[in-house]
Structures are given as C-alpha cells and as structure tokens.
Design a protein around this nucleic acid. Structure first.
Lengths: 212, 212
DNA sequence: CGAGCGATTACCCGAAAGGGTGAATGGAAC
DNA sequence: GTTCCATTCACCCTTTCGGGTAATCGCTCG
C-alpha cells in the first residue's frame, strides 16, 4: 500500500504543544520510507515560522494551542501557501470548530485516539489531495449542517451569559438596552435550539462555539 | 541523576486511550536503563487486568477513558494493591478531579504538556515514594481548599440544570417538589459561589465537578 | 442520646427571564 | 437602489428564578 517508494518522501511538520504526543508522531513516522518528519513546533507562532522555513508537504496541527487558535494558524498558512495540506490532530471539539477548520483550508481531521497506521494512511491520503474525515467527526458535522451561525454580537452576549451575568448587566457592559439583550437572547436560543440560557451555554460549549 | 543503575529497573504500565501518546511514552522510556515499559492498556478495564498481571512499580493513567473514570480505576487498583504508585497523566481537569484522584490514592500528576525528562523524573520520584504535583495543578487545588462539596442530590439537580431543565421539570424528574429543587439550587449557588444557575454550571464544568 | 447534616417541604416576595409583536437604522450585497 | 440582515429598541405578558425564613424527618457520628 505504500506509495512514494521511489519518489522523494513526504515531508511532515508537527505543530502541537504536547511533547509526548509529538514524540509518538515522530516514532510512528520514523520507520516509514515514504515520509519524514522535517520539523516540530510547540505553538502556532513558531509553527507558522517553521512552515515558511521547511515548506512541508503535510502539516499536523493541534487546534488548542497556548498562543493562537489552530484555526487562525491554518488561515494564515493557507493564505500564504494555497496548496498547503494541513491535517488537524485533535480531540473532537464540536462541529463549529471542525467546520471552521475545514472552511479555512484544513484537509482533514485525526482524533487523538488515532492509531499509528491510521496516522500514516491519513498523511498519504492528504498528500495525494484527498480529504480525511473520520466517521464520528462527519456525523458531528452532519448534525448541524444548515444551522444558522451566531452573529458577533450574539457571541458577545452569550459569553457574558456564561460568565453569570444578568441581561441588565450585559446591557450595561455592552452599552445597549436590556431589551436589546433580550432580543439577542431570543435569537441565540432559537439558533442553538436551547431551552434556556444555561442550556444555550452548554450547547455552545459542546459545539465548540464558545470556550469556558 | 539516574537512580537504579544496578538495581532492577522500574517497571511501568501505561493506561491511556491515545495510541500516539502511549507511543511517545514508550519512546521516552526506551533509552532509559533504569525503567522499562512492561504493559500498555487502552481503557480502564484492561488496564486493571494488566495491573494484576504485571504488577508494575509505577502506573501512568489517563483520567478520561471510554469505559470508566480514571479515578474509579485508581480506587479499584489501590484497594487491591495498597502500595501501587499511580501517576495521573492528563490535561488539567479542575481541582475536584485532581483532589479526587489524590484522595483515592494517586501519587502525582503530569500535564500532557510534560517533557520527556519531566516524565522520567516524575516516574523516579513516584517510585521513590514522593508525590509529584506540578505548580499549576497545586495552584488550582489551593484555590478551593476548604470548599464544601456538592451532595449527591445537588449533583443530580445541577446536571439536570445543565440539560436546560427548569426547576419544575427537575422536580418532576426527581420526584420531589419544586420548592425542594429551589432549596438545592440555593445551596449549589452558595457552594460554587455562582451568580445564577448558568454560572453554576460553568463553574462546575471548569472545576471538573460535572461533565457536559 | 444529642448534635449535625442532608433531604425534604412550605410560604412570601421582588427580580429576572423569556415569549410575542412590531419597528427603526445602517451597512453590505445584489 | 432595493433587498437582506444585523443591530437596536419598545411594550406587553406570563413564567421562572432566586433570596429570606422556618420547619420536619432520618441518618450518622461522637
């Protein structure tokens, strides 16, 4: 099944703030003739710098990193290098994170429960221009296709709600009337199909819309 | 710095459902003369079985596993083997998870951002009978020492609140009066120092008291 | 056995939430 | 320019929430 037998190996860059996981990736690639790990980075900023320097064929990227969201990093890289192949390596963070990453140019996903062989197959597939979406991720995505997204203002309101603020406080915080906050809340509840503000926060966290 | 130069090596068991991370652990231990990986398991059940079979000196255990909480697995192992040394390898899950693991016999913690060297030093320290608590974990713990814990009933109520249920629904669900639910809510808000039910759910999730 | 605690219920009260409806503004897209 | 949409605000109303206070019951731990 190994492609690239005689061709130059697939050059891989790993961007992840978990040293032991990077170690595992290195080990999974070490004995493969058709791929080689050409760089590692512990955060998004150095990851992007590394990308510019080594120009990897495939980049493995974590979504949660200390300095910047992986999605933002993907956007920046793909803006500069349109043909960059980026595989997101993460625990499932909700459909919104996933669709955001895909929208900004990710080529696929790998859950961290991935086996060595699955990792290697995914790298080859992505390098060959295919998309890699594990079934559980695809299902999570499918559950919310066509859902309306929250507006920026609605996100601000929802984050404040998650902080335990009443509509009146949120109104003061955002410099708008309480009635307006209520209007936003109505829209938020409808869009998230939530029963009350608490449920809305829970749904938003589950779906990767906000973090707490 | 390596202890155990002439003694028999420290026998290590790794229980974690992330294959690549286990690979990283294996790789970090591979070139160490004074320690050896004697077993691996992907879930708590087989992890406990493995423990009984190989009797490791030090066990590395993830807290989130598919079949059983790592804390429960720690309890079971320590009930049978009082002198088992267990190192919890996890992303920080909130003070309640941490204190629960310590209470049930964990010897220490390692965040998944741990370096190879830190992992090896921690294994040696735990094997020597010391506790290993990273500063950030200790700080998280310290912030809530002396806090009252939620009763079982309060947990049931809070989980239902997180599901978007009104007090009246919760009352029906639990077969008690709405006034009783309100009484529990008052206690929950006080114990978690939360401003409203939404805030209470957020705090509880952050602190590892409930999962969503 | 009394003290303490968890669980239960009741009542009163004001504040907050949320549903319905309608409407004005302003910017972006077409 | 007109349509679409986010944002803003208002008024109505009922339901729910949350604070205060007090009491009963049963279990456990000194």
């Amino acid at each position: 099944m190994s492609a690239n037998i005689s061709a130059r190996p697939i050059r891989v860059l790993a961007i992840d703030d978990h040293p032991l996981l990077r170690e595992g990736i290195a080990s999974a690639l070490a004995d493969q003739a058709d791929m080689t790990l050409v760089g590692e980075a512990v955060d998004a900023r150095t990851g992007i710098e590394q990308f510019r320097r080594v120009r990897p064929d495939v980049t493995l990227m974590d979504l949660q990193m200390p300095d910047m969201s992986g999605i933002e990093a993907i956007r920046i890289i793909r803006e500069e290098f349109t043909d960059a192949r980026i595989l997101v390596l993460t625990t499932f963070q909700g459909d919104v994170q996933v669709s955001g990453a895909l929208r900004h140019g990710a080529s696929g996903f790998l859950l961290k429960g991935t086996l060595r062989k699955e990792l290697r197959d995914a790298i080859r597939a992505v390098h060959a221009g295919r998309r890699v979406i594990p079934p559980e991720v695809a299902v999570g995505l499918a559950e919310h296709v066509g859902d309306e997204t929250l507006s920026l203002r609605e996100l601000e309101v929802l984050r404040s709600v998650a902080g335990g603020n009443a509509n009146k406080s949120i109104a003061a915080e955002l410099g708008i009337s309480e009635d307006t906050v209520k209007a936003h809340m109505k829209s938020i509840l409808a869009k998230l199909d939530a029963r009350d503000r608490t449920h809305a926060v829970v749904m938003a966290v589950k779906r990767g819309i906000i973090e707490i």
